[in-house]
Design a protein around this nucleic acid. Structure first.
Lengths: 208, 208
DNA sequence: AATTCCAGAGAACAGTTGTTAACTGCATGG
DNA sequence: CCATGCAGTTAACAACTGTTCTCTGGAATT
């Protein structure tokens, strides 16, 4: 039932996406709280006032960027948690997937890492909301795992949050190593793998 | 051999400290990359040009803030790692110390969490440097622990980094819960404690 | 075919920014 | 006691900011 957009609404969405893309580019070397609306429109090549047709403010644009960035991350989470194989295999695959995601969406990852604790409240909140959803999703997956037999709900969520935070930390490290030689990126992957492995070991002996 | 400062240099340092304090205050609701030098001097009640007598730019001021913020954290790290008692006792004490530090230095903690992945490269690098020092220090302490017998150097550093990151995550959560009712802060403390406990369990079974 | 709607343009606004230069007054060292 | 140094001031600059109001061209609706 997808209604074909009129060429009018299509053009509007195109401009909107251009604004988002331009902003994401500019945010590679600054924070959202210093991003000016004129800066963005100049980059796109439209009048400053056109900005208001799409966003109330740059903070508003930031919230839209959160949706875009973490929306693209959502399927990755699903892939990781529904992965088959033993613990070590799943960890290696997860780290590999994170590395790939950073390579294909570096600006998104940078944006989330930067604005998670950034200076714009509404954006911080939007990110926390999405991450809470991720944690919830991870928790559900953990619940189904036989290793989690006997675990209570709070501890499952505690572990899920640990995994989510660890994923973000790893993504941020891969980002820093993006331009570095491959051996450095390999080292990051190895450290990340072992950290997750250590957490998994802790998980297996939690009820001892 | 501390030479008493002339009243001239003393006054200068006083102004410098005022600039740092004012900046730290302003940074509670924005990022360093949007902090203007005039904003800071206005807050202190001094002419904009006076800023240049102390800092080349706001980025430069940011680096100075890193020293101040992480300098105050250094002794805390020492206290934690040199703490006595069994694993659980040490963890509870560590979480307690982190909570206290966030209560007494909230602006410092916020600054580090915000600018660790922030928009100003020189500040990011300064923070990474200091955190690497912390990790090194933790690693040395871990090496002395009998539990670490048989561990290789890379894995010790891997674990040290995990502890440091976990410490920062915990501090950030305490910060978010600063204004919240005590039961919420208690909950944060409990989650943090269990996460560190899980990591410690993983550590104990690492060589299995 | 006539009318409405609306994304984007254009111009102007008051206020802000970083940086420069030349200055002042007072603590300092000879 | 006098000359120097230097923290902080004053004034001015060109460039930039977000926001308002008015306008326009063409798609959408009738």
């Amino acid at each position: 039932m997808s209604h074909t957009l009129g060429i009018r609404q299509a053009q509007k969405q195109k401009t909107r996406q251009s604004l988002l893309d331009a902003a994401l580019g500019l945010l590679e070397e600054q924070s959202l709280s210093s991003l000016g609306l004129r800066e963005v429109t100049r980059e796109v090549g439209v009048a400053p006032t056109a900005f208001y047709r799409h966003f109330r403010s740059t903070a508003d644009l930031g919230v839209a960027l959160v949706e875009e960035a973490l929306g693209s991350l959502h399927p990755m989470i699903r892939t990781i948690v529904s992965s088959a194989g033993d613990s070590d295999q799943r960890i290696e695959r997860a780290v590999e997937l994170i590395a790939r995601h950073v390579e294909t969406h570096p600006a998104h990852v940078r944006f989330i890492a930067r604005e998670r604790h950034g200076g714009v409240q509404s954006v911080r909140e939007a990110i926390q909301d999405q991450l809470a959803r991720f944690a919830e999703e991870v928790k559900v997956a953990l619940t189904k795992d036989p290793v989690s037999a006997g675990w209570n709900d709070d501890d499952l969520l505690m572990l899920a949050n640990l995994y989510v935070d660890q994923m973000l930390m790893t993504a941020s490290l891969f980002l820093d190593a993006l331009e570095a030689p491959q051996e450095e990126r390999q080292r990051v992957a190895q450290v990340a793998t072992r950290q997750m492995r250590l957490i998994s070991i802790g998980r297996e002996h939690w009820l001892d």
